[in-house]
Design a protein around this nucleic acid. Structure first.
Lengths: 207, 207
DNA sequence: AACTTCTTGACACCTGGTGACATCAACGAC
DNA sequence: GTCGTTGATGTCACCAGGTGTCAAGAAGTT
């Protein structure tokens, strides 16, 4: 346990928390891959991870969250990337890079293990999970819209453009993700993303 | 009851069914307007309509459905309108008319009574309802995409354009609906719709 | 009147989700 | 070393959404 004591900045309680969280996620994904989302009860997931049902809900707000939680980071990543793009860049380019942050997270995870792909397929096939996914996207859209408005010096409440542009970017993301999922990861995400934004660019970059 | 017997094509059982359904919807919307979606139980709705909880679930698949069910018709209306537009019409125009069918349903309902407006606001403010709304939209998107593909002689599975165009149209719908809702119905839906599609047209109509 | 069909209510049951409380391990202060 | 504190956990009770089942009743049929 030498390596442990060399990291005083991370308390043991925190590491244990992370461990339980991972265990829960792992158990959930494995069970759901076999039986499907609806057939797996929270009790079963908790039991498989060696904790109680009550503890599960101390880590995840809902049964859907254990599958979908990682999306929160992707949203933050997109937002941050858009904010970091040079102000002079055309909207279609900036948004393409922002969306690519999210898409790359899926594609990279898929490279080694195909785990991300299976999770995406599970989400897109399960109504309850798809609904949560769409809710996340709605949040992303709000965030991207305020950022897009800021870049152009517009009022996100008064002008239509920011929400339209953010929505269009997410439509591209959605379309690419679905194609990638339907092709079992065979199609190239980067190429798909470029083509989708090429089609949308005329509207994104119009004055 | 003379008027009744003059319509043999509509059985009494069917009319009664419609009546109970309306009563349930009415009770639900009224209660939710006062207390909010989450605070109203299915038992309370059923009791207010004079039926049992079990009967409620024979009419609606979920508590959300009693609020959101009318969306199903709007989706069918959009799809039908797109299919009915002349083939020579540019995509942006055809899609604008299709979306307007849905938007007009909201706006008309609001003209007299403001009921549609309140329902839309309830949906957009309540996460559970918004999620269901987004699921409906996802279905609309699939339907619009196959229709858009048919109009252009494309394969909806192979080409990106159909799903992109359908998605963009729904982003316009969404943006307009939200603006209309946020302005408490003050903004003109028709004008908003035109402006949104004007912004999107360059992408929709590109070759 | 007897029969059939459709609708309903009553009841039991499962599951997701939450509040309350007791317990136990880790940690710091004395 | 002991004591109090803090945080994570398990247990239990409970609520609400949702479903299966069955028996009773109204409507329409022969």
């Amino acid at each position: 346990m030498v390596g442990v004591s060399l990291r005083p900045e991370v308390t043991m309680a925190q590491r244990k928390r992370q461990l339980v969280s991972d265990e829960l996620t792992e158990a959930a994904l494995q069970l759901m891959a076999q039986e499907g989302f609806d057939a797996v009860t929270v009790d079963a997931i908790a039991a498989a991870a060696g904790v109680s049902k009550r503890t599960f809900f101390r880590y995840f707000a809902s049964k859907e969250d254990v599958v979908v939680q990682f999306l929160a980071d992707m949203g933050a990543g997109m937002h941050a990337e858009l904010a970091a793009r040079p102000a002079a860049e055309p909207p279609s380019t900036a948004l393409r890079h922002a969306v690519w942050v999210a898409m790359a997270a899926c594609a990279d995870g898929a490279e080694h293990s195909g785990r991300a792909l299976r999770v995406v397929q599970l989400i897109l096939r399960t109504p309850a999970l798809r609904a949560r996914f769409l809710e996340h996207q709605a949040q992303w859209r709000d965030d991207l819209a305020v950022e897009a408005a800021r870049r152009r010096g517009l009022d996100p409440e008064a002008d239509l453009y920011p929400r339209l542009a953010a929505g269009a970017a997410l439509v591209a993301f959605d379309t690419v993700l679905r194609r990638w999922s339907d092709s079992d990861g065979a199609d190239d995400p980067a190429d798909l993303t470029d083509r989708a934004f090429a089609a949308l660019a005329p509207a994104l970059d119009a004055d």
